[in-house]
Design a protein around this nucleic acid. Sequence first.
DNA 1: GTGAAAGCGCTAACAG
DNA 2: CTGTTAGCGCTTTCAC
Lengths: 322, 322
Amino acid sequence: MPVTIRDVARASGVHVSTVSRAFSAPHLVNPDTRSRVLAVAEGLGYRPNRAARALTTGRTHNFGIIVADIANPFFPPLIKAAQAHARSRDYNVFVADTDEDPQVEEEVIQTLSKQVDGVLLCSPRLTNKAIERLREEVPFVVVNRRIRGMPTVLMDVGQGASLAVRHLTELGHRRIALVSGPAGSWTSKAMHEAVATAGADAVFLGPNAPTEQGGITAAADVIASRVTGVLAYNDLVAIGLIEGLSERGVRVPEDVSVIGVDDIVAGRLNRPKLTTVSMPAAAAGRVAVDMLLQAVDDVAAATVTTLETSLVVRESTGRART
Amino acid sequence: MPVTIRDVARASGVHVSTVSRAFSAPHLVNPDTRSRVLAVAEGLGYRPNRAARALTTGRTHNFGIIVADIANPFFPPLIKAAQAHARSRDYNVFVADTDEDPQVEEEVIQTLSKQVDGVLLCSPRLTNKAIERLREEVPFVVVNRRIRGMPTVLMDVGQGASLAVRHLTELGHRRIALVSGPAGSWTSKAMHEAVATAGADAVFLGPNAPTEQGGITAAADVIASRVTGVLAYNDLVAIGLIEGLSERGVRVPEDVSVIGVDDIVAGRLNRPKLTTVSMPAAAAGRVAVDMLLQAVDDVAAATVTTLETSLVVRESTGRART
DNA sequence: GTGAAAGCGCTAACAG
DNA sequence: CTGTTAGCGCTTTCAC
């Protein structure tokens, strides 16, 4: 049987409330009593039951992180950073994978709602309306999607796309393509806009599946469009594209330069090493947790934090053929 | 203010215990009353508070998954499968990343212990002794490490290593190397043993860091050892090794064949595509959850489940030079 | 500075 | 079948 506060109280000859205070309100208890209680607790191997504490305090000291797909290499670094940061603030985290299914997302939020003080919603698939509604049940911080009036952490893909286009034009590329992602995607839209206003001669290819296969498939269109520089929706698409091009005898970067987005591990390991727009995923995780912590106390806050992206130049880009 | 069981009781004109039963013991309540209560609950947006329920039932309906490093591409598929399976059994999961630190591992287990019914310990870094001790506080299932008397899920790397060696000898390789991992690693030991008994002329190179850099560094030794076939500790090492070899003008698979272990995404994307021992990570996640579910009810069980691995032949292996 | 008592949301005997 | 009554482990007034 697990040891409770009552066992500690008995063993140290004080009342339970004193034990409780020894842990959660040290200044209200005599230093001597406190250290004695703590010693006894230690000896008994006492661990406060956080769930029971939550019942009276209203603070669970838990967060939820909800992602569309844990296996998507973009998320683990974000989760890792968020979890570590939460831990440093004495919070534990639930992680739930919705498998890209809005319905599952909603259910997960609901089962979690009473067990957490807040939820990190990463790239949610739910409608804005649904999210607004669920917000009544539990505080959110949204990552990677813009929803009016909600605390949000954004990674500035638009700015990243501009960086990428600038890099290509500096290398002498005159005609470039954006190999975009799924139809409704917020990210696709932001990239499209950035590329369109970057002042290059741009063609837009898509929609494509946000996967390696999507990239492979897009290779034919890229060749047909006779561009020399490409910005892909993400690294997976970029890697697939490079593969598709190479199958058709087009070399990267000698014939065509390719830039990805995300900076996943695989891109660094791939040949040629992928030039990519690096997303500050770890920073996003930390910031999101900070905002959540804040949202928990201060319902009013609804900030938007936009994190800068950066371009990592590796081997998949080079001077344009002349 | 969140809606509680009491609000539902009041609104539907029954006692709280009836509402409680309507949810957790349907057969004990009149069908009509039940459906009325459920309707009212639905209307009010009532969600049972699982933490409060846990206080009386002793079942939290939560699991913990503790991993050394979420960002290690080996874990996400395991976590994803475990989480999905747990969800299907109406369990939520905490995920904690220990950053390879035994001390953190212990702390995490302790803060989680009262909030979960059991913990999945993946590739733990703690000593056997420490784990035995913590076992008093919460049931474990250990994944990827053999600990006597504990429910364990193993992926048979030894058998995978045998498969790999057989594949190499079938391709005509006479002299092969095992580029092993960190010194104390259980996996390294199992691979070593399997390779040693596989009946080939084998050389053992290591220890090495279990990373791409470890592989790059090992390239010189591999060349010096004049082998034509290599089994690497894992895919990261294999990919690094291929890179290191190529920097030194040794081509894969033309000059040397390389096999990895894990079947991470990056290996499939890499050039040449990596031949590798595929670990049944998703299956391991599911099985582990099943065992945990069982361990929660039946303290006695201490089964070991060993999952078969398989060899995925891609492009990094070929016939030996003659 | 410490004890007593009430109560968080819920379930589990026990009556009726 | 449903209401009553205890409590789960902990915190928090309120007294002393």
